[in-house]
Amino acid sequence: MKKILAVLMTFILMVLAGCSSNEAGSSESKNGEPEAEGAPRDMTFGSATVGGFWYTLSGAMGEKMKEVFPETSVTIVEGGSVSNLLGLSQGTFALGFSNGQTVPEAINGINSFKEKIDNVSTVATLYPNVFHIVVREDSDIYSVQDLKGKKVSPGIKGYSGELAFIDILKLNDMTYDDLGGIEYIGTADGADLLRDGHIDAIVGMISAPVSTFQELDTTLGIRLIPLDDETIKGLHEMNEGYLEYTVEGGTYSNVKEDVKTVAGYTVLLVSDDLMDEETVYKLTKMMVEEKETWATLSPVMKDFNAEYSVTHNVGKLHPGAEKYYKEIGALK
Results as ranks from 00 to 15, higher is better:
residue 263 A to W: 13
residue 86 L to Y: 14
residue 273 D to T: 00
residue 62 G to F: 04
residue 257 E to V: 10
residue 95 L to K: 06
residue 251 T to C: 09
residue 226 P to W: 01
residue 59 G to C: 00
residue 19 C to W: 12
residue 207 S to A: 14
residue 224 L to E: 11
residue 52 G to W: 08
residue 106 A to F: 12
residue 129 N to Q: 14
residue 76 I to N: 05
residue 331 L to C: 13
residue 38 G to K: 08
residue 286 M to D: 07
residue 96 G to N: 09
residue 26 S to M: 11
residue 230 E to A: 04
residue 191 A to K: 09
residue 173 D to Q: 14
residue 31 N to Q: 01
residue 235 L to N: 00
residue 55 Y to N: 08
residue 298 S to Y: 00
residue 8 L to I: 13
residue 58 S to V: 05
residue 99 N to W: 02
residue 258 D to E: 03
residue 132 H to M: 06
residue 175 T to H: 03
residue 262 V to R: 02
residue 113 F to P: 12
residue 242 Y to Q: 01
residue 111 N to S: 15
residue 127 Y to M: 13
residue 71 E to L: 05
residue 88 L to I: 13
residue 313 N to T: 11
residue 322 E to L: 06
residue 99 N to V: 12
residue 207 S to K: 07
residue 33 E to P: 00
residue 4 I to G: 01
residue 188 A to E: 14
residue 322 E to F: 03
residue 64 K to P: 07
residue 112 S to N: 15
residue 170 K to I: 07
residue 318 H to Y: 10
residue 116 K to W: 08
residue 22 N to Q: 15
residue 66 K to G: 00
residue 8 L to N: 05
residue 320 G to N: 04
residue 24 A to E: 09
residue 267 V to Q: 08
residue 153 S to A: 14
residue 26 S to K: 14
residue 187 T to P: 05
residue 331 L to A: 14
residue 274 L to R: 12
residue 260 K to Q: 12
residue 287 M to D: 01
residue 315 G to P: 13
residue 256 K to A: 10
residue 300 V to T: 14
residue 10 T to Q: 03
residue 215 E to Q: 12
residue 152 V to G: 13
residue 151 K to G: 03
residue 156 I to D: 06
residue 102 T to V: 15
residue 222 I to G: 02
residue 126 L to H: 12
residue 28 E to G: 02
residue 227 L to N: 02
residue 262 V to T: 13
residue 8 L to E: 07
residue 18 G to N: 08
residue 72 T to C: 02
residue 259 V to H: 02
residue 249 G to P: 04
residue 160 S to F: 06
residue 12 I to F: 11
residue 71 E to D: 10
residue 170 K to T: 15
residue 114 K to Y: 15
residue 143 S to T: 13
residue 244 E to F: 02
residue 179 L to I: 03
residue 157 K to D: 10
residue 207 S to D: 03
residue 155 G to C: 05
residue 211 S to D: 00
residue 323 K to Q: 12
residue 277 E to C: 01
residue 194 L to G: 03
